[in-house]
Design a protein around this nucleic acid. Structure first.
Lengths: 360, 360
DNA sequence: CTGAAAGCGCTTACAG
DNA sequence: CTGAAAGCGCTTACAG
């Protein structure tokens, strides 16, 4: 039995199997072990094999802290989401986390509560940890946050939103990175188009007084509002009083309340497009309680196709959004950026799907 | 202007403000800065003040990797949960994460999918990162996982379950830690009692044929089953055919299916106690679809008081479980253990609350 | 392709 | 109470 590296003189031995242990057991230098283990080329294949075998036998596990300190790059990645109480973001988190883990990265999560200064604070904290990369929800951030991101040089991909196509800078200077040429990296879909599509669906069903009922009012909700306005104006059916915007947090209970209020104040409304399924589900349950016929008296539509929407009675018409795919694709894109590769496109549009069910 | 530490000779300068920068600017040694910043006593208060001021002015931020490497203790903590698709665990995660962040710890999350070997693998991965502590769902783990935990000496608190009181070792040897004396640290409530309490409620409502309908069948679900059995046997109303155990994942849709099946096969059932609210909500929606009167023809009860249960029609009778409190209390207990303190009790019972609503 | 050496930015015995 | 020095376990120019 070969003795492990003699560290008897050290006054702070940790008992851990180290790189040097592997090196001496394999009869090569630590540098070579380091290179072999990380799959750096320019190492003799035979040596690589030997090192791998020895490392395996000794049960060597690299110390992430030491690696991070020496290389100035960590093996963790941060994801910033607004809330954990909206399953939308949990799905995003789940998919991203799975993708990162498969690539050997640890996921750190931050919850911003839709608060730009909380987001800024989280960004600051996270940056101190030198994440290898960053996923962040939306394109709306404080000046300071954006400055922090830019200065840190940490690659970043935005989730669930795409920049307005009209505002893209058309100048194609070379020597600019893809991001500089075509704007921030992001994976999402066109919220405005989705809002418009649902409204067109309701119009096609012959609805004339279509309310847009929203809560939370984050930038993506407001884009759906824009799509709804566009469709209604085009149909000459737009009316300010059809906008019900409530800044409170979105929930089933709030959906029920809004439904009752809308019915009371505007009895001639024949459809409500809720900006999120939880509101719409709450409305459906309230309709049941109140004995209001859906879609007979009033049609109800939602957004996101969350859990349970297909189980409601009547089943909820909604827009299915590709949350898991966004999480996975964004994580993959970030992984590319971390490895110094250039993604095919800076903005990835994953689309959406109108799901007509019985509630409209 | 005093020059920052002359690192011109270094061949790998990172531009970061380091401890030495603060030290030379404050005119003390790095050791002193280190001690002052960490609030170690045995540092002159005046010096502490000076160091703090200088550190602040230079915008010094300690490098977590360097700190972890030198001290062999990281500033992150791991939480292992079965799923992200059950809001129960999301609530747990949210509360724990918030508590840890307030104490300056980063939360790393692992999803086991109710799979003991996945859990083991995650445990292995996480331990390589030397977490300061660990939160883990339940008390059921593979032998290997338990061995890993024990050997690692990483403090650990279990969530949502408590050991069987009868099996506690009564021998009170001194020189044993609290954990050794009274079993693993955990924060939860008595699942068996909760199952029994709900069954008693249904019995009190005059129900005679009370089904226990469950999915997922994790250990905590099985404990609720035990409580249900106990109550029924005591009332001389127990019958094997009243047990509907489905190993599939819990969901609204499955609840609807189970409800239909139960009605078809056992039309004389007068109550169903579902092991989780998502199943019960699905059953309520199915009842509505099928025109079955609840609770007139059949009573329906759930468990956990998840989002939406109070919004259903009829509102769902359920057991409110203290998930957020469990997450927070467990995190606090773990924080104590990390600081080398001994918690008041090793097993913290946070109780539960029966919430009777109109569905029973 | 390989190795010796320096360095990453901290903490912590040890000595005073 | 304070400091000089060694060390944590890696990576990476640099030289060969």
């Amino acid at each position: 039995m070969k003795q492990l590296s003699s560290r008897s003189k050290n006054h702070r031995s940790t008992g851990r199997v180290t790189l040097s242990d592997v090196a001496s057991a394999a009869g090569v230098s630590p540098s070579t072990v380091s290179r072999a283990l990380r799959g750096e080329r320019a190492v003799d294949p035979d040596l690589v094999a030997r090192v791998l075998a020895v490392s395996d036998k000794l049960g060597y596990v690299p110390d992430p802290a030491a690696r991070a300190l020496a290389s100035q790059r960590s093996d963790h990645v941060t994801i910033l989401i607004p809330l954990l109480s909206n399953t939308l973001f949990v799905d995003l988190l789940e998919a991203a986390q799975r993708t990162f883990r498969a690539a050997g990265f640890q996921t750190l999560m931050g919850v911003t509560h839709y608060n730009l200064s909380e987001e800024e604070q989280l960004m600051r904290e996270q940056l101190h940890h030198r994440p290898a990369g960053m996923l962040i929800t939306g394109l709306d951030h404080s000046q300071a946050t954006q400055k922090l991101m830019a200065r840190s040089k940490v690659p970043c991909v935005h989730l669930m939103d795409l920049p307005d196509p009209s505002s893209s800078t058309p100048l194609l200077q070379r020597a600019l990175s893809l991001e500089e040429r075509s704007g921030p990296y992001c994976v999402g879909f066109r919220q405005t188009d989705a809002g418009e599509a649902m409204t067109q669906h309701l119009l096609a069903k012959g609805k004339k007084r279509i309310v847009f009922a929203a809560a939370q009012l984050d930038p993506r909700v407001m884009q759906r509002l824009v799509g709804w306005r566009k469709a209604l104006k085009q149909a000459q059916l737009y009316d300010t009083h059809l906008e019900w915007l409530n800044p409170a947090a979105s929930s089933l209970a709030l959906g029920g309340q809004m439904f009752e209020q809308i019915l009371k104040q505007s009895p001639n409304v024949d459809a409500i497009f809720f900006c999120n399924d939880d509101l719409a589900q709450g409305a459906l349950l309230a309709a049941m309680r109140l004995g209001v016929a859906v879609p007979g008296q009033i049609a109800i539509a939602g957004f996101n196709d969350l859990t349970g929407s297909d189980q409601m009675w009547p089943p909820l018409t909604t827009v299915r959004t590709p949350r898991a795919q966004v999480g996975e694709a964004a994580a993959s894109m970030l992984l590319q950026l971390i490895q110094g590769e250039t993604p095919e496109v800076a903005q990835l549009d994953l689309g959406f799907e109108l799901v007509p069910r019985l509630s409209t």
